[in-house]
Nucleic acid binder design. Structure first.
Lengths: 145, 145
DNA sequence: CGATAGTTTAGATTATATCTAATCTGACAA
DNA sequence: TTGTCAGATTAGATATAATCTAAACTATCG
């Protein structure tokens, strides 16, 4: 996504396109990983414009609130974020905790009545197991003994 | 689940059935909510045996590790826990953040090859939307104007 | 241009989780 | 039964992540 599209998405969401917000959005959109707020802070501050830590947190909160960014539902101390671009599911590794994107496929939605009087917005899938790296690590020590 | 079954499940998992571990398991099994470590600490310390905060955290880590308890994949500052009893999915409210259990149903698993060389252990479903309380709250102000 | 709301700042503070070293406890072997 | 030792707990210190605070800055609108 280019500069103009980022600007438009921010303003379209009711947020001003400040340099600091732009930097966060641009960083997240160029990511395939799911960085923590701390990682975003450090990455973004390598170049101008600089942002204070509170600005990073404030901006992530605002971006999540308007729906341009989402917090990833994963265990671990620090929240992880990704930009809502192409729809995808997440795979979380039992061993190393890494969160990876996997292609979207439609999940069968529950029967009507299943959620009672709750209103359903989205069904999110999380796959759990071993990532490619950890899965091959497990196999390797055994095959040599 | 009764006292003896808790003891057996602890010992069967390779953990000693200490009074403090028993208290945490008993508390979690009597819960339909998804308490934070802090909430568990407070609830458990209302009666003997008392536990230090580190003991609560240590024991939750151990219980998660052996698979008797799981950390719930939900946003929010503090981790939330539930005992692995009856299989269920979770509904997370967009507005109040409450995590609710909903009945299990089988999710269609992905086609072979979908996860590449990763190994799949489980597909977890998270429903998102408004809980019954927040959904009815939203409707009420509008219908009066 | 001035006013004002929105945003950022930098450091302080809070909340959550983890560490640390000493002490306690229970299991097991002799 | 006793002694040993590994596992567990303790209580407070410390680390980490997130949030607060009040002042300053900035962009927008009238």
């Amino acid at each position: 996504m280019d500069a103009e599209a980022i600007k438009r998405s921010l303003e379209g969401s009711g947020l001003r396109c400040t340099p600091q917000r732009y930097a966060v959005m641009a960083f997240l959109m160029g990511q395939t990983k799911h960085p923590t707020a701390g990682e975003i802070f450090e990455a973004v501050n390598r170049v101008d414009p600089r942002s204070s830590r509170a600005t990073i947190y404030n901006n992530l909160r605002d971006l999540v609130q308007v729906g341009l960014v989402r917090e990833v539902a994963a265990e671990g101390r620090a929240a992880r974020f990704d930009a809502k671009g192409m729809r995808h599911h997440h795979f979380i590794c039992d061993r190393c905790g890494k969160v990876e994107d996997v292609d979207w496929y439609d999940v069968s939605t529950p029967e009507s009545g299943y959620l009672g009087t709750r209103t359903l917005r989205e069904c999110e899938l999380i796959f759990r197991g071993l990532c490619a790296k950890c899965a091959s690590r497990r196999v390797s020590p055994r095959s040599s003994s």
